[in-house]
Amino acid sequence: MISFLVNNVDVQVDAPGDTPLLWILRDWLNLTGTKFGCGVAQCGACTVHVDGQARRSCVTPVASVAGSAVTTVEGLAATAGDGRELHPLQAAWIEVQAPQCGYCQSGQLMQAAALLGETPDPSDDDIRNGMAANLCRCMAYVRIQKAIKLAALAQNGGRK
């Protein structure tokens, strides 16, 4: 039995310890917002937070998150702590109409949240470098970059 927090809720799962966290989230816990893309940490579609840090859940054995706090896209809004339905990044994503097929977007959002968590006012290079490991096959990169800047601005209270 492996215990950890998911989106601030205690969970216990009965699964082999080497089961990738991705499948635990999707198939044990029904949190299907986190996606399976490449399975080898190349595309970033499976990105979640483990103790606040971005992690590729497809290469994260569930045993390694025992006792940790995991956040998925379904719990992203709550991390903003302002009681709103959308995290500033999600609001910005809608504002610029960033997603196309949308399959990579949960991972993009979680990666962007990790970026803003460390660098609240990122430069263009910070965004490009921090997001380079998240593939968008529709290549909606222009809008993703724009949305991150917009969210940073909103989070910083419009100050630049």
Partner: peptide, 19 residues
Amino acid sequence: AAARDVPSKVNGTAVYGID
């Protein structure tokens, strides 16, 4: 106009084949 499919694609609720 805002696209109708976008909101579900930013909060994890959009259902794909695999879901």
